[in-house]
Amino acid sequence: MANVLVCIKRVPETSGQILLTDDEQAVDARHVGWTVSAHEECAIELATQVAGATGGTSTVLTVGSSDAVEQLRGALAVGCDSAVLIEADTATYGPADVAAAIGDVVSAHEANGTTYDLVLLGNDAADTGDFQVGVRLAALLGRPVVTGISACAVADGVIVARGEGPEGTEVFELPPPAVVAVMEGGVSPRYPSIPGRMKAKRAPIETVSPQREPAGHGRVRWKLPPQQPSSVEILGTGPEAAPAVVDLLEELGVLSR
């Protein structure tokens, strides 16, 4: 039996045009909506798979404002058993602060008898892209950690994690409890069912307050790279453009290879 904790983050949906807030500290999400990153959608799927396969539980957790309940309910709708909101104004949080807040909850739950054999996170947040919360959390908890993992299972009391390395699929075998940061690509996140959504709507959310003041981040400001005006040269329309394309490839010297 493996109890799994999966940590997610409410982030702006950024598939369209990106605007920044007036204080240049974040993406202005007023008109674009919110989501969780693709890595975390896969982490949620892995959490429910591991819990299901081992007869354990899956708990979803986030550090954020009360609005992040929307993302917690989204995870409950696709199979997580329970949810925890660490309610905080994360504008002043750095990655070490997020890790500390999660670590405190893991320790508190452990003191109450719930041990998380596996803690899953996304490899990097889709907005702040820090690539380190999982490693910092593991250090605080004194647990082994691997990042960049696309598939994960628990068999015979060992966590088997797989990720793409420079020479092929790398396999790690970790003794629980351990921390694993997940990358998109190994599993397909499921869609919520209607009964799943109904159940998620009514599910209780455990809400806790962070135990310490954040140390902060080094962010000075966010800025958008300058937009270049279009200078595209249309070589033609349809298959008749093929000679012009090959002329260009010859000119660029890529045809001789």
Binding site: T14, I18, A126, G129, R219, W222, L224, P225
Partner: peptide, 12 residues
């Protein structure tokens, strides 16, 4: 690079 490389962060 933050936000997948579409935004730059100045960080101290």
């Amino acid at each position: 690079q933050v936000v997948g490389g579409t935004v730059l962060e100045e960080m101290r």
